[in-house]
Amino acid sequence: MADPIEKVSIIISRGSLEGVYPGLIMANGARMEGIEATLFFTFFGLDAIINKRMDNLKVATVGNPAMHIPTLVGAIPGMSAFATSQMKKEMEKLDIPPVREFIEMIHDTGAGLFACKATVDMFHLTQADFCPQCDDIISVGQFYEMAAGGQIIFT
């Protein structure tokens, strides 16, 4: 058997519901397997840890061919909210928690959660804008230092 993975650093760069969840599921799954995990939120991915926004992430219904909704239909007001509520229902059935609860859970597993400094500066944010589980705002260089010796996964 190949050597087991011991450490992962997962980057979440998108702010849609479907953009955020894969990274969260992989981070939690890593911890469940005893793998060390760090989450790094960058660009619109920061929405997943911004206090005012994390409870309101939406599924993108436009520009996503796999949704099988014609672009003009997807653009109708309320479509995104509808698709989001449907997806949240399905996730609840699978015991996948809402974003805030999931972030708290992942933090409690001992994983580190970090915000990207470049994006924080660009969007004029401060530590106070983030949920308490956000451990720190770090630069790309610090991220690579933390990620040393493990796998980096970009989502």
Binding site: N28, M32, E33, G34, D95, D108, T109
Partner: peptide, 25 residues
């Protein structure tokens, strides 16, 4: 883990302390 956290009476942090490196497994 979510069900464990919600229903067993032991939260996520303690689960990882009790069963280090992967409580559910």
């Amino acid at each position: 883990i979510r069900k464990l956290t919600k229903e067993s009476g032991v939260d996520t942090k303690e689960l990882y302390q009790l069963f280090p490196k992967g409580p559910a497994k």
